[in-house]
Protein backbone atom coordinates (compact mmCIF):
# COMPACT_ATOMS: atom_id res chain seq x y z
CA UNK A 1 0.00 0.00 0.00
CA UNK A 2 2.87 2.36 0.80
CA UNK A 3 4.14 1.91 -2.71
CA UNK A 4 0.77 2.93 -4.10
CA UNK A 5 0.80 6.08 -1.97
CA UNK A 6 4.21 7.05 -3.28
CA UNK A 7 3.02 6.44 -6.83
CA UNK A 8 0.00 8.69 -6.27
CA UNK A 9 2.23 11.41 -4.85
CA UNK A 10 4.61 11.15 -7.80
CA UNK A 11 1.70 11.45 -10.23
CA UNK A 12 0.34 14.56 -8.53
CA UNK A 13 3.70 16.20 -7.83
CA UNK A 14 4.50 17.68 -11.27
CA UNK A 15 1.19 19.52 -11.62
CA UNK A 16 1.16 20.66 -7.99
CA UNK A 17 4.73 21.97 -8.18
CA UNK A 18 4.06 23.60 -11.54
CA UNK A 19 0.88 25.30 -10.30
CA UNK A 20 2.58 26.35 -7.10
CA UNK A 21 5.60 27.94 -8.77
CA UNK A 22 3.87 29.43 -11.81
CA UNK A 23 0.46 30.33 -10.39
CA UNK A 24 0.11 30.39 -6.60
CA UNK A 25 3.42 32.13 -5.88
CA UNK A 26 3.01 34.77 -8.64
CA UNK A 27 -0.52 35.54 -7.39
CA UNK A 28 0.66 35.82 -3.79
CA UNK A 29 3.58 38.05 -4.82
CA UNK A 30 1.27 40.28 -6.85
CA UNK A 31 -1.27 40.65 -4.07
CA UNK A 32 1.45 41.42 -1.54
CA UNK A 33 2.27 44.48 -3.68
CA UNK A 34 -1.16 45.89 -2.90
CA UNK A 35 -0.18 46.33 0.74
CA UNK A 36 3.25 47.87 0.23
CA UNK A 37 2.31 51.50 -0.31
CA UNK A 38 4.36 53.95 1.77
CA UNK A 39 1.22 55.64 3.06
CA UNK A 40 0.08 52.51 4.87
CA UNK A 41 -0.99 48.97 4.09
CA UNK A 42 -4.46 49.87 2.84
CA UNK A 43 -3.59 53.15 1.13
CA UNK A 44 -3.96 51.72 -2.38
CA UNK A 45 -7.45 50.45 -1.62
CA UNK A 46 -8.34 53.90 -0.28
CA UNK A 47 -7.14 55.46 -3.55
CA UNK A 48 -9.35 53.07 -5.52
CA UNK A 49 -12.35 53.73 -3.30
CA UNK A 50 -11.97 57.52 -3.13
CA UNK A 51 -11.46 58.28 -6.79
CA UNK A 52 -14.58 59.16 -8.78
CA UNK A 53 -13.02 57.79 -11.95
CA UNK A 54 -12.22 54.40 -10.48
CA UNK A 55 -15.59 54.16 -8.80
CA UNK A 56 -17.28 54.90 -12.10
CA UNK A 57 -15.21 52.20 -13.82
CA UNK A 58 -16.21 49.65 -11.19
CA UNK A 59 -19.91 50.58 -11.37
CA UNK A 60 -19.77 50.48 -15.18
CA UNK A 61 -18.10 47.04 -15.13
CA UNK A 62 -20.75 45.76 -12.77
CA UNK A 63 -23.67 47.18 -14.79
CA UNK A 64 -22.34 45.91 -18.12
CA UNK A 65 -21.82 42.44 -16.62
CA UNK A 66 -25.34 42.48 -15.21
CA UNK A 67 -26.88 43.57 -18.53
CA UNK A 68 -24.85 40.96 -20.43
CA UNK A 69 -25.97 38.22 -18.03
CA UNK A 70 -29.64 39.21 -18.41
CA UNK A 71 -29.50 39.45 -22.21
CA UNK A 72 -27.67 36.13 -22.62
CA UNK A 73 -30.19 34.32 -20.43
CA UNK A 74 -33.10 35.63 -22.49
CA UNK A 75 -31.39 34.74 -25.78
CA UNK A 76 -30.31 31.35 -24.42
CA UNK A 77 -33.88 30.35 -23.66
CA UNK A 78 -35.21 29.47 -27.14
CA UNK A 79 -31.96 27.74 -28.14
CA UNK A 80 -31.83 25.59 -25.01
CA UNK A 81 -35.52 24.76 -25.41
CA UNK A 82 -35.18 23.82 -29.07
CA UNK A 83 -32.17 21.61 -28.24
CA UNK A 84 -34.36 19.50 -25.97
CA UNK A 85 -36.92 19.09 -28.76
CA UNK A 86 -34.73 18.46 -31.82
CA UNK A 87 -33.52 15.03 -32.89
CA UNK A 88 -30.99 13.62 -35.34
CA UNK A 89 -29.48 15.95 -37.90
CA UNK A 90 -31.13 19.14 -36.71
CA UNK A 91 -30.09 18.45 -33.13
CA UNK A 92 -26.45 18.01 -34.18
CA UNK A 93 -26.74 21.10 -36.38
CA UNK A 94 -28.04 23.26 -33.51
CA UNK A 95 -25.57 21.83 -30.98
CA UNK A 96 -22.61 22.46 -33.29
CA UNK A 97 -24.00 25.95 -33.80
CA UNK A 98 -23.65 26.50 -30.05
CA UNK A 99 -20.25 24.80 -29.69
CA UNK A 100 -18.57 26.14 -32.84
CA UNK A 101 -18.05 29.70 -31.51
CA UNK A 102 -16.24 28.21 -28.48
CA UNK A 103 -13.48 27.14 -30.81
CA UNK A 104 -12.94 30.48 -32.45
CA UNK A 105 -10.58 32.91 -30.74
CA UNK A 106 -12.30 35.68 -28.78
CA UNK A 107 -9.99 38.12 -30.54
CA UNK A 108 -11.16 36.97 -33.98
CA UNK A 109 -14.80 37.15 -32.94
CA UNK A 110 -14.31 40.66 -31.55
CA UNK A 111 -12.51 41.76 -34.71
CA UNK A 112 -15.46 40.49 -36.77
CA UNK A 113 -17.78 42.68 -34.75
CA UNK A 114 -15.51 45.67 -35.31
CA UNK A 115 -15.93 45.19 -39.05
CA UNK A 116 -19.70 44.71 -38.78
CA UNK A 117 -20.42 47.57 -36.37
CA UNK A 118 -18.26 50.21 -38.05
CA UNK A 119 -19.76 53.58 -38.79
CA UNK A 120 -20.00 52.78 -42.49
CA UNK A 121 -20.10 49.06 -41.90
CA UNK A 122 -22.65 46.54 -43.16
CA UNK A 123 -24.96 46.75 -40.15
CA UNK A 124 -25.33 50.51 -40.32
CA UNK A 125 -25.87 50.40 -44.10
CA UNK A 126 -28.49 47.71 -43.58
CA UNK A 127 -30.32 49.80 -40.98
CA UNK A 128 -30.23 52.86 -43.23
CA UNK A 129 -31.52 50.86 -46.19
CA UNK A 130 -34.37 49.59 -44.09
CA UNK A 131 -35.17 53.16 -43.18
CA UNK A 132 -34.82 52.48 -39.45
CA UNK A 133 -32.33 55.30 -39.13
CA UNK A 134 -31.21 57.98 -41.55
CA UNK A 135 -27.70 58.49 -40.27
CA UNK A 136 -25.25 55.84 -39.04
CA UNK A 137 -25.68 54.80 -35.40
CA UNK A 138 -22.70 54.80 -33.05
CA UNK A 139 -22.44 51.07 -32.42
CA UNK A 140 -18.72 50.93 -31.79
CA UNK A 141 -16.50 52.36 -29.05
CA UNK A 142 -19.29 52.58 -26.49
CA UNK A 143 -21.24 50.32 -24.13
CA UNK A 144 -23.54 49.17 -26.96
CA UNK A 145 -20.61 47.69 -28.87
CA UNK A 146 -19.16 46.13 -25.74
CA UNK A 147 -22.47 44.49 -24.87
CA UNK A 148 -23.08 43.13 -28.38
CA UNK A 149 -19.60 41.58 -28.44
CA UNK A 150 -19.75 40.20 -24.92
CA UNK A 151 -23.23 38.71 -25.37
CA UNK A 152 -21.97 37.03 -28.51
CA UNK A 153 -18.89 35.56 -26.81
CA UNK A 154 -20.64 34.48 -23.61
CA UNK A 155 -23.96 33.19 -24.94
CA UNK A 156 -22.87 29.51 -25.16
CA UNK A 157 -22.01 29.61 -21.44
CA UNK A 158 -25.64 30.48 -20.72
CA UNK A 159 -27.15 28.02 -23.20
CA UNK A 160 -25.41 24.84 -22.01
CA UNK A 161 -26.40 24.89 -18.29
CA UNK A 162 -29.96 25.89 -19.20
CA UNK A 163 -30.16 23.06 -21.73
CA UNK A 164 -28.86 20.68 -19.05
CA UNK A 165 -31.59 21.79 -16.64
CA UNK A 166 -34.34 21.52 -19.27
CA UNK A 167 -33.15 18.06 -20.22
CA UNK A 168 -33.46 16.83 -16.65
CA UNK A 169 -37.10 17.92 -16.34
CA UNK A 170 -39.43 14.95 -16.07
CA UNK A 171 -41.95 15.38 -18.90
CA UNK A 172 -44.57 13.57 -16.82
CA UNK A 173 -44.70 16.57 -14.47
CA UNK A 174 -45.86 18.74 -17.36
CA UNK A 175 -48.45 16.18 -18.37
CA UNK A 176 -49.64 15.95 -14.78
CA UNK A 177 -49.99 19.72 -14.61
CA UNK A 178 -51.84 19.67 -17.91
CA UNK A 179 -54.08 16.82 -16.75
CA UNK A 180 -54.91 18.68 -13.54
CA UNK A 181 -56.31 21.47 -15.64
CA UNK A 182 -53.53 24.04 -15.63
CA UNK A 183 -53.29 26.09 -18.79
CA UNK A 184 -50.12 26.48 -20.80
CA UNK A 185 -49.13 29.65 -19.02
CA UNK A 186 -49.75 28.24 -15.54
CA UNK A 187 -47.79 25.07 -16.30
CA UNK A 188 -44.92 27.22 -17.50
CA UNK A 189 -45.02 29.57 -14.54
CA UNK A 190 -45.53 27.04 -11.78
CA UNK A 191 -43.81 23.88 -13.07
CA UNK A 192 -41.50 24.37 -16.05
CA UNK A 193 -39.89 27.68 -15.13
CA UNK A 194 -39.06 26.78 -11.47
CA UNK A 195 -37.45 23.56 -12.70
CA UNK A 196 -35.33 25.51 -15.21
CA UNK A 197 -34.26 27.99 -12.57
CA UNK A 198 -31.07 26.19 -11.38
CA UNK A 199 -29.74 26.02 -14.94
CA UNK A 200 -30.81 29.59 -15.59
CA UNK A 201 -29.12 30.92 -12.45
CA UNK A 202 -26.04 28.79 -13.10
CA UNK A 203 -25.66 30.14 -16.62
CA UNK A 204 -26.36 33.73 -15.56
CA UNK A 205 -23.80 33.53 -12.73
CA UNK A 206 -21.22 32.03 -15.04
CA UNK A 207 -21.73 34.76 -17.63
CA UNK A 208 -21.73 37.47 -14.99
CA UNK A 209 -18.45 36.25 -13.46
CA UNK A 210 -16.76 35.93 -16.85
CA UNK A 211 -18.02 39.41 -17.82
CA UNK A 212 -16.49 41.00 -14.73
CA UNK A 213 -13.00 39.97 -15.82
CA UNK A 214 -13.40 40.44 -19.57
CA UNK A 215 -10.59 42.31 -21.24
CA UNK A 216 -10.19 41.82 -25.00
CA UNK A 217 -13.77 42.52 -26.06
CA UNK A 218 -14.36 45.68 -24.01
CA UNK A 219 -10.88 46.98 -24.86
CA UNK A 220 -11.49 46.71 -28.62
CA UNK A 221 -15.23 47.42 -28.88
CA UNK A 222 -15.50 49.93 -26.06
CA UNK A 223 -12.23 51.78 -26.24
CA UNK A 224 -11.70 54.70 -23.93
CA UNK A 225 -15.43 55.45 -23.73
CA UNK A 226 -16.35 52.29 -21.86
CA UNK A 227 -13.53 51.40 -19.51
CA UNK A 228 -13.91 48.23 -17.45
CA UNK A 229 -12.02 47.06 -14.39
CA UNK A 230 -9.74 44.75 -16.36
CA UNK A 231 -8.81 47.59 -18.75
CA UNK A 232 -8.06 49.76 -15.73
CA UNK A 233 -5.74 47.07 -14.34
CA UNK A 234 -3.92 46.83 -17.66
CA UNK A 235 -3.55 50.59 -17.91
CA UNK A 236 -2.18 50.82 -14.35
CA UNK A 237 0.68 48.64 -15.53
CA UNK A 238 1.20 49.65 -19.15
CA UNK A 239 0.63 53.39 -18.87
CA UNK A 240 1.59 54.20 -15.28
CA UNK A 241 3.69 51.32 -13.95
CA UNK A 242 1.49 51.56 -10.86
CA UNK A 243 1.93 47.97 -9.72
CA UNK A 244 0.44 48.44 -6.26
CA UNK A 245 -2.78 49.89 -7.74
CA UNK A 246 -2.95 47.09 -10.30
CA UNK A 247 -2.43 44.57 -7.51
CA UNK A 248 -5.17 46.09 -5.35
CA UNK A 249 -7.65 46.23 -8.25
CA UNK A 250 -6.80 42.61 -9.17
CA UNK A 251 -7.38 41.53 -5.60
CA UNK A 252 -10.75 43.31 -5.53
CA UNK A 253 -11.77 41.59 -8.77
CA UNK A 254 -10.70 38.15 -7.56
CA UNK A 255 -12.38 38.53 -4.18
CA UNK A 256 -15.67 39.60 -5.79
CA UNK A 257 -15.53 36.64 -8.20
CA UNK A 258 -14.73 34.13 -5.44
CA UNK A 259 -17.40 35.54 -3.11
CA UNK A 260 -20.05 35.28 -5.83
CA UNK A 261 -18.90 31.77 -6.66
CA UNK A 262 -19.13 30.70 -3.03
CA UNK A 263 -22.56 32.27 -2.69
CA UNK A 264 -23.91 30.46 -5.73
CA UNK A 265 -21.87 27.25 -5.43
CA UNK A 266 -24.97 25.23 -4.64
CA UNK A 267 -26.91 26.46 -7.65
CA UNK A 268 -24.04 26.47 -10.09
CA UNK A 269 -23.84 23.20 -12.01
CA UNK A 270 -20.07 23.24 -11.92
CA UNK A 271 -18.51 20.89 -14.39
CA UNK A 272 -21.89 19.38 -15.13
CA UNK A 273 -23.39 22.08 -17.25
CA UNK A 274 -20.21 22.69 -19.19
CA UNK A 275 -18.53 19.38 -19.65
CA UNK A 276 -20.99 16.61 -19.06
CA UNK A 277 -23.90 16.35 -21.36
Amino acid sequence: MARRHIETLLLLAPAVIFLFLCFVVPLARLFSLAFTDEAGPFATFAILADSDVYRRVMVNTFLVALAVALITVVLAWPVAYILTKLKGFWFAFALYGVLFPFWISVLVRTFSWMILLERNGPLNRFLINLGITDKPLALLFNDTGVMIGMVHVLLPYAILPLYGAMLRIDQRLLMASDGLGAGLFDTFRRVYFPLCLPGLMGGATFVFLLSLGFFITPALLGGSNAITLSMLIASFINDRLAWSLAAAASLVLLVVVLALLAATAKVLPFGKGMYAK
Partner: peptide, 14 residues
Protein backbone atom coordinates in the same frame (compact mmCIF):
# COMPACT_ATOMS: atom_id res chain seq x y z
CA UNK B 1 -11.74 30.44 -12.26
CA UNK B 2 -9.28 33.26 -11.58
CA UNK B 3 -9.97 36.06 -14.11
CA UNK B 4 -7.37 35.87 -16.89
CA UNK B 5 -6.38 39.51 -16.46
CA UNK B 6 -5.39 38.76 -12.85
CA UNK B 7 -3.39 35.68 -13.85
CA UNK B 8 -1.78 37.66 -16.65
CA UNK B 9 -0.64 40.50 -14.42
CA UNK B 10 0.62 38.14 -11.70
CA UNK B 11 2.55 35.91 -14.09
CA UNK B 12 3.94 38.94 -15.94
CA UNK B 13 5.33 40.40 -12.73
CA UNK B 14 7.04 37.17 -11.69
Amino acid sequence: IVPVIVTAVAVYRS
